[in-house]
Simulated assay, not measured.
Amino acid sequence: MSARPGTVRPGGRTARVRTAVLRAAGDILAEHGFAHLDLADVARRAGVGKTTVYRRWGSVTGLVTDLLAELAHDAAPHRETGSLPGDLRAYALLVQREAADARQGALLRAVVAAAPCDGRTAAALRRFFEVRVEEWVPCVEQGVARGELPAGTDAAAVVRAVSAPLHQELLTTGVAPAPHAAECAARAAYAAAVAGAYAGAAPVTGR
């Protein structure tokens, strides 16, 4: 049984072919959107045989799945600053820089637009975001251990709270958020976490 695209990182010529194909696919997505992503066109841009692309990826969704896996793998590792506000700020600015990147911002918008119409693309996109969140969860967990946040804080929810408004701005306006927006997102997520917003279910109150 063959491995899912993106789960094995090959070496040698296979690695060079994969790199060229994923670069070509990303360029087409960023320039023209998901609807114009065609395996034959990708093969031409990458300078490889069409048969190679069809045999390895099989379909457009297989290629996009691998592309998202590669983007998640290559994302900058989490940065520990010694305080949770500093860590959240570092993450927010990373998301902002990625959104402001002409290629990656456009690529993300294209995949998000396609996801509701294709289950496999939607699953790959979810996994992309999961990997990004998992990378930064230890920063929040360390903040809990230092007593900066209440015990029982959902670390993943805090990380998502930082990036969500930035991705929302990119996807709904088509304009990348500014660094100031990243600063605001980090401060808002931290303030909510300190207040206990992510520390378990809210208590049920009587009427």
Rank of each mutant, 00 (worst) to 15 (best):
1 M>W: 01
2 S>R: 14
4 R>T: 10
5 P>A: 03
9 R>W: 09
17 V>N: 08
18 R>C: 03
20 A>F: 11
21 V>K: 11
22 L>Q: 06
24 A>I: 13
24 A>P: 12
24 A>W: 10
26 G>R: 08
26 G>I: 09
27 D>Q: 15
29 L>N: 03
31 E>K: 06
33 G>M: 01
34 F>M: 10
36 H>D: 14
38 D>G: 02
39 L>C: 06
40 A>I: 04
44 R>A: 15
44 R>C: 08
48 V>M: 09
50 K>P: 00
50 K>R: 15
52 T>Y: 04
52 T>K: 06
52 T>N: 07
52 T>S: 14
54 Y>A: 07
55 R>T: 12
57 W>R: 04
59 S>V: 05
62 G>E: 03
62 G>N: 06
68 L>H: 02
69 A>T: 01
70 E>Q: 14
76 A>M: 11
76 A>F: 04
83 S>F: 12
84 L>K: 04
85 P>F: 12
86 G>A: 14
86 G>L: 14
89 R>Q: 15
90 A>I: 06
90 A>E: 11
93 L>E: 12
94 L>W: 07
94 L>F: 12
95 V>Q: 06
97 R>Y: 05
98 E>S: 14
100 A>D: 12
101 D>H: 14
102 A>W: 06
104 Q>I: 12
105 G>T: 05
105 G>E: 06
105 G>L: 09
106 A>E: 04
109 R>H: 03
115 A>F: 00
117 C>R: 15
118 D>H: 07
120 R>I: 04
121 T>S: 01
123 A>E: 01
124 A>L: 01
124 A>C: 02
125 L>P: 01
125 L>F: 03
126 R>K: 03
129 F>S: 01
130 E>T: 04
134 E>A: 11
134 E>K: 01
135 E>R: 11
137 V>S: 00
142 Q>T: 15
145 A>V: 05
145 A>W: 05
150 P>E: 02
151 A>S: 07
151 A>D: 06
153 T>C: 00
153 T>I: 02
154 D>M: 00
156 A>S: 08
156 A>I: 03
156 A>G: 12
157 A>L: 07
159 V>W: 00
163 S>Q: 13
164 A>I: 10
170 L>D: 05
173 T>S: 13
173 T>G: 09
174 G>L: 05
175 V>I: 12
175 V>G: 05
176 A>V: 08
179 P>Y: 09
180 H>I: 09
184 C>G: 07
185 A>N: 10
187 R>I: 10
188 A>K: 13
191 A>R: 15
192 A>D: 12
193 A>P: 04
193 A>C: 04
194 V>W: 02
194 V>E: 13
195 A>N: 05
197 A>V: 10
197 A>Q: 10
198 Y>L: 02
201 A>P: 06
201 A>M: 12
201 A>T: 10
